[in-house]
């Protein structure tokens, strides 16, 4: 909750102020779209560890955070990133090597858990996953659940419909709410106070944003309030949810930002090669994350030609005929 008029700060300051060792965080976007990558790279550079990450299918950002050793606990629905990584590579390795604690839900369930947090109820019901191992196999031990007040006492609860057969359902699955310490999203437009406009799909960004104690928003364009308030039906998040507004053009790069730029297939293919091997992955981090001081410097390393290549066509919102092999 923050009603200040001007919340603009740089990404170093925003991450330092709101993301701490051990924080419970969530990040916006979906697989290779609108991941808040500039913020994620800054978390890695600031060497913030032991994070508890809530993800539905957040893709590239999840894999890079896990690969850099920032995550110790993960609640997730999907760790894949299209043909660039049918299973996210560092995610897969971390689980197979027992490096992180994790728990599986479904995409709808994670979205509902954020929604529960956003609307202030302890749980929400669904009919999804009845009869499956999502219900039976728990990743966090009873002991951990007891010890850590930020983890619910149960993963899920199956309940007989308390309204008998009302709604033609005999049973429901109850999902515990998520209320992260901080959520980070990348959007197309924001003003200084934090009125937010996203274009294209919003994924679960709105629910994630509203469920969170603190909210960092990075944006392609920092615009005058009048521009957003002239057409308020197009805005999704009111300013009082927002704690930091950070202006970072290409802040979702190498993932896409609808109507601004596409994902970069060359970067994502290169990433895949680096991610296959521990030593190579260290080299990746050294070159593309630790080796640059900020996101602009990463864009410089990548080069103008590539940035031009992924520029969105104004009619469709993506880069037409981009070579995506």
């Amino acid at each position: 909750m923050n009603t200040e008029k001007d919340k603009v700060m740089d990404i170093k300051e925003a991450i330092k102020r709101f993301v701490k060792n051990g924080s419970h965080i969530s990040i916006g976007g979906f697989t290779l779209n609108r991941n808040p990558m500039a913020a994620v790279y800054e978390i890695i550079r600031q060497n913030i560890k032991n994070l508890h990450l809530y993800a539905h299918a957040n893709g590239q950002a999840v894999d890079e955070l896990i690969g850099a050793g920032c995550i110790s606990k993960l609640e997730i629905a999907y760790g894949g990133n299209a043909r660039f990584a049918p299973t996210c590579i560092r995610f897969k390795k971390a689980i197979q090597d027992g490096k992180i604690l994790f728990e599986d839900y479904t995409n709808y369930q994670m979205a509902l858990r954020f929604l529960a947090g956003a609307i202030g109820v302890p749980f929400l019901p669904t009919r999804s996953s009845l009869g499956t191992d999502i219900l039976n196999k728990w990743g966090f031990s009873k002991d951990l659940r007891k010890k850590d007040p930020k983890i619910p006492n149960k993963k899920v609860i199956v309940m007989n419909n308390p309204f008998d057969s009302w709604g033609d359902a005999s049973k429901v699955v109850l999902l515990p709410a998520i209320t992260p310490d901080v959520t980070i999203i990348h959007v197309q437009k924001a003003d200084k106070q934090g009125t937010i406009r996203m274009k294209g799909l919003t994924f679960a960004d709105v629910e994630q944003a509203k469920s969170s104690k603190y909210l960092i928003v990075t944006c392609e364009e920092l615009v005058e309030s009048d521009e957003l308030r002239d057409d308020p039906d197009q805005n999704q998040i009111p300013f009082f949810y927002v704690d930091a507004v950070v202006h970072i053009p290409y802040g979702a790069y190498p993932t896409a930002c609808y109507r601004y730029y596409d994902y970069d297939p060359i970067y994502l293919n290169e990433y895949r090669r680096y991610a296959q091997d521990d030593d190579l992955f260290k080299k990746y981090l050294d070159k593309f994350v630790y080796g640059v001081k900020d996101h602009q410097e990463l864009l410089n390393v990548v080069g103008k030609e590539r940035i031009e290549m992924i520029k969105a066509d104004p009619r469709t919102g993506y880069a037409i005929n981009l070579d995506r092999k």
Partner: peptide, 15 residues
């Protein structure tokens, strides 16, 4: 908890 091979998970498939 200690799989031989890990895949992406449900995503929206179970839903």
């Amino acid at each position: 908890l200690k799989p031989k091979a890990r895949f992406p998970g449900s995503g929206g498939a179970c839903d």
